[in-house]
Amino acid sequence: MVGPQFHLFAAGPRPVAPFSHAVESDGWVMLTGQMPTDPDAPDAPLPEGVEAQTVRVMENLKIILQELDLDLSHVLQCRCFLTEFERDYAAFNTTYQSFFPADRRPARTTVGVTALAVGALVEIDCIARRP
């Protein structure tokens, strides 16, 4: 059994709270929920709309996975959080599903929440597994 490894990557988005980008143990990798912030311009305004924010969040998850020599094909489960669930759920689903082949979509839970850090409309965390 390998003890946990705590990963914080310079290439990743600037953390909005005290956390690691990912924690890994025994081949399991838990990625912290990503916000729709731009890693190259962390103080820039967030993208407008749930579709653009979902793309940015997924791209941020891809950055963290890449730093771990993984990709979205290694993701087994996602938890998604929306501040405007009823308004944004359909548009979120359309954008989210474009990142995964139809026959390899992770298990997923989507929850409506009252607020997210940095005023985001969407946040996604995930669990991946090394081959």
Rank of each mutant, 00 (worst) to 15 (best):
R108F: 07
L116R: 07
A117Y: 08
E86H: 13
C78P: 01
V113P: 06
Q97P: 00
Y96P: 03
T83V: 07
T95L: 00
Y96R: 02
A115R: 15
T109Q: 07
T94R: 15
Q77D: 12
V111Y: 06
A91V: 07
F81K: 01
R104D: 15
D103A: 15
T83K: 05
P106S: 09
A91G: 04
Q77L: 14
S98Q: 15
D103R: 14
A90C: 10
T109P: 00
A90E: 15
C80N: 10
R105V: 00
F100Q: 09
T94I: 10
R87L: 05
T94C: 03
Y96E: 01
D103S: 15
R87D: 13
R87F: 05
F81A: 01
F100T: 06
L76K: 14
T94M: 01
A115K: 13
T83S: 09
Q77E: 14
F99K: 14
Q77R: 15
R87G: 03
A102K: 09
A90G: 10
T83W: 04
A115V: 00
R79E: 08
R105N: 05
G112K: 08
T95S: 07
A90R: 15
E84C: 11
N93Y: 03
C78F: 01
F100G: 07
E84W: 03
T94N: 04
D88I: 04
T83G: 05
E86S: 15
P106Q: 07
L76H: 11
A115H: 12
Q97Y: 13
F85K: 09
V118T: 10
A107W: 02
